[in-house]
């Protein structure tokens, strides 16, 4: 599972960077969301393979070593929620940018800031 999650992280990061380097602002936003997924999975991957382990919900008489590490999960939970907030804010900025400048082309936006 470690290998699989590493592959997922690699692909998610690659795709997100490719999108973020593009000239279309919508694509950049999507890249940012993918980046969030990739980062969350990278943290999760650091907790080790889950195969043969139990979710960290305590039951009577179970050895603690059998549970997965709850800490990365707690961190990711926070990250997901904050990621959502960022997502909403970013989408609003997208709308505002379009209303103000009538373009979502980063090349044109770059020129826009110069005057």
């Amino acid at each position: 599972m470690n290998l699989l999650i590493s592959i997922m992280v690699g692909v998610l990061f690659g795709a997100s960077v490719f999108l973020m380097l593009g000239r279309e602002l919508k694509g950049v936003c999507m890249g940012v969301f993918l980046l969030g997924h990739g980062a969350n999975l990278a943290i999760l991957g650091a907790s080790g393979s889950p195969i043969g382990k139990l979710a960290p919900v305590l039951e009577h008489g179970v050895d603690l070593a059998r549970y997965t590490d709850p800490l990365p999960q707690a961190l990711i939970l926070t990250a997901i929620v904050i990621g959502f907030a960022v997502q909403a804010f970013l989408l609003t900025l997208l709308v505002i940018t379009w209303r103000r400048t009538q373009t979502l082309d980063l090349n044109k936006l770059a020129l826009e800031t110069e005057h």
Partner: peptide, 21 residues
């Protein structure tokens, strides 16, 4: 160029995650 950077970053992140596990 975008693809090259993307592949490089993806590879780096893949390797970092793999070693961190």
């Amino acid at each position: 160029p975008r693809m090259a950077i993307a592949v490089a970053v993806g590879a780096v992140m893949f390797w970092l995650t793999l070693t961190s596990t």
